[in-house]
Simulated scan of single mutants.
Amino acid sequence: MCLPSTRSWSARRPAALSAIDNARYERVAVRSAEIIASVPDLSATHPLPEAPWHEPGATRSVRRVLLHVIVETAQHAGHADILRETLDGQKSS
């Protein structure tokens, strides 16, 4: 069995890939901020598409969608941190 390196993931990751990812993240963040700023009312709602998991006629507010995005991002960041700790053995501080 091969044990993972003790170097951090970012140290093993090619710099060019990090630069591309960071640039894309920045573009998405700027565009997201523009879209959010253009919404006049966070209570505005939008009907959900018909799907077995949605009640007929269900809607979601912009506020609820934003909260969902924040929660999902935090949850996935936590999963990524767990994977990184498993690979490199380093604990977050």
Rank of each mutant, 00 (worst) to 15 (best):
M1D: 13
M1K: 06
M1N: 09
M1W: 06
C2M: 11
C2H: 11
C2Y: 06
P4L: 01
P4E: 01
S5H: 09
T6W: 05
R7V: 04
R7W: 04
R7K: 14
W9N: 04
W9G: 01
A11W: 02
A11D: 11
R13F: 12
R13S: 06
P14I: 03
A15W: 00
A16G: 02
S18V: 06
S18L: 13
A19P: 05
I20L: 12
D21C: 10
D21G: 08
N22Y: 07
N22S: 15
N22H: 11
N22W: 05
A23W: 03
R24D: 10
R24C: 07
R27K: 13
V28M: 13
S32K: 12
A33E: 13
E34D: 13
I35R: 11
I35H: 08
I36R: 12
A37K: 08
S38R: 10
S38T: 05
V39R: 09
V39S: 08
V39C: 14
V39Q: 15
V39F: 11
D41T: 04
L42F: 12
L42R: 10
L42V: 02
S43G: 14
A44W: 05
T45F: 00
H46T: 07
H46A: 11
H46F: 15
P47D: 03
L48D: 06
E50Y: 01
A51P: 00
P52S: 12
W53A: 11
W53F: 15
E55V: 00
E55W: 02
P56T: 01
P56H: 02
G57Y: 01
G57W: 06
G57I: 05
R60I: 03
R60P: 01
R60N: 07
V62W: 04
V62M: 10
R63Q: 13
R64M: 12
R64D: 15
V65P: 00
V65K: 00
H68N: 06
V69I: 13
V71L: 08
V71C: 01
E72C: 05
E72G: 02
A74W: 05
G78N: 04
H79I: 11
D81N: 09
D81M: 14
L83N: 10
L83R: 13
R84V: 01
R84T: 05
R84S: 06
L87R: 10
D88G: 02
G89C: 08
Q90A: 14
S92C: 02
S92N: 09
S93Y: 09
S93I: 07
